[in-house]
C-alpha cells in the first residue's frame, strides 16, 4: 500500500495546482494589497498599515452594507428553501417517465446569460412592464406600481439565479432516500404527512443544508442583481468592492473589504461545520 501512496496525490496534482495558482495565489495578492496605500492618482504604494481596515470600521457606513448583505443573503436562503423544496419533492415523488425532462427544465435558465435573465425583470416589473401594463389596462390600478429598483426586485433577481441550486441540492438528497423506509413508515401506521415529517424531511436535511450554504455564499458575493434591479439603498458588499476596485481604482481598500467579507464567510462556514457538520453536505451527494 505504501508504494502507491503517491498515486492519489499525482491524480490530484492538476486540480491542486489549479487551486493553488488560480485561487490561493490571487488570494494572497488580495491580502497583501489590503495593507497597501493608494495615491490620489490611483497608483498603489507598497506599505504595511491597517488604515484600510480602520477605515472600514471607522463608522457604521461600511459595516451597515455588510449587515445588509448578510440580511439579504439570509432572506434569499429562506425564500429559495421555501420555493425550492416543493418542486424538488415533486420531482422525487413523481412517477413520470419524463423526470429527466423536468430536471432539464431546472437547468434551462443556466443556458441563458445571467445578465440577460436579470435584465428581463425590467420588462416584467417596470412601470411600463408586463405586470403594470396588464393591471392598468384591466383597470385594477390607475398608476403603475413601484416594483422595480427596490429590495423586492433584488430578491427576485437573486431567487431566479439561485433557486436551481437549491432545488438540485434538495433533489439529490431526496433521491438518496431509500423508498422502502417510507413504505415501512406507512405500514407501521404513519399518515402521508407523518411519514414526510418523520422520515423524508430529516433525511433530506443534508441536501437542504448544502443548498442553504451554497445559496448564502453565492448571494453574499453577487453584485449584478443589486446593480441592475436595485435602487440607491440596495447596494450590497460586492457592489462596494466593485466600485472601490473599478470605479475609484482604490485596490487596497477594495482588497480590505474583500478580506473582511471572506473572513466573515469563513466564520459562518466554520460555525456551520461546528454545529451541523460540513460532512452533511457530502452525504447529500452520496
Amino acid at each position: 500500500m505504501q508504494k502507491s501512496s503517491w498515486r492519489p496525490w499525482a491524480l490530484l496534482a492538476p486540480s491542486l495546482t489549479a487551486v493553488f495558482l488560480l485561487l490561493l495565489v490571487p488570494l494572497c495578492f488580495i491580502v497583501v494589497y489590503s495593507f497597501w496605500l493608494r495615491a490620489p492618482t490611483g497608483a498603489d504604494i507598497a506599505a504595511f498599515q491597517l488604515g484600510n481596515y480602520k477605515k472600514f470600521a471607522a463608522d457604521f457606513f461600511y459595516p451597515s452594507i455588510l449587515l445588509r448583505t448578510i440580511r439579504v443573503a439570509f432572506e434569499t436562503v429562506v425564500l429559495c428553501l421555501l420555493m425550492g423544496y416543493i418542486p424538488a419533492y415533486f420531482f422525487y415523488r413523481s412517477k413520470t417517465r419524463h423526470k429527466s425532462v423536468l430536471l432539464l427544465l431546472i437547468m434551462i435558465p443556466f443556458w441563458i446569460s445571467f445578465i440577460i435573465r436579470t435584465l428581463s425583470w425590467i420588462n416584467i416589473l417596470g412601470d411600463t412592464g408586463l405586470i403594470n401594463h396588464v393591471l392598468v389596462r384591466v383597470g385594477i390600478i390607475s398608476e403603475p406600481l413601484n416594483m422595480l429598483y427596490n429590495e423586492g426586485a433584488v430578491l427576485m433577481g437573486l431567487i431566479q439565479y439561485l433557486l436551481p441550486f437549491m432545488i438540485l441540492n434538495v433533489y439529490v438528497s431526496l433521491e438518496g432516500i431509500d423508498k422502502s423506509l417510507l413504505e415501512a413508515a406507512r405500514s407501521l401506521g404513519c399518515t402521508e404527512w407523518q411519514a414526510f415529517r418523520e422520515v423524508t424531511l430529516p433525511l433530506s436535511l443534508p441536501g437542504v443544508s448544502a443548498g442553504c450554504l451554497l445559496v448564502f455564499v453565492l448571494t453574499s458575493g453577487t453584485y449584478l442583481p443589486p446593480m441592475i434591479l436595485g435602487g440607491p439603498r440596495n447596494e450590497m458588499i460586492a457592489n462596494l468592492i466593485f466600485k472601490r476596485v473599478i470605479g475609484t481604482l482604490d485596490w487596497p481598500f477594495g482588497s480590505a473589504i474583500s478580506v473582511v467579507l471572506l473572513t466573515l464567510l469563513i466564520i459562518i462556514i466554520y460555525t456551520y461545520n461546528r454545529y451541523l457538520g460540513i460532512n452533511q453536505i457530502f452525504k447529500s451527494l452520496q
Partner: peptide, 19 residues
Amino acid sequence: WNGHQLEWSEKWDRVKSGA
C-alpha cells in the same frame, strides 16, 4: 477634480446610498 477624487468619490458613495 483629480485632486478631490479620493475624498469626494468616497463621500459620494455615502450620499448615494442614503447614509
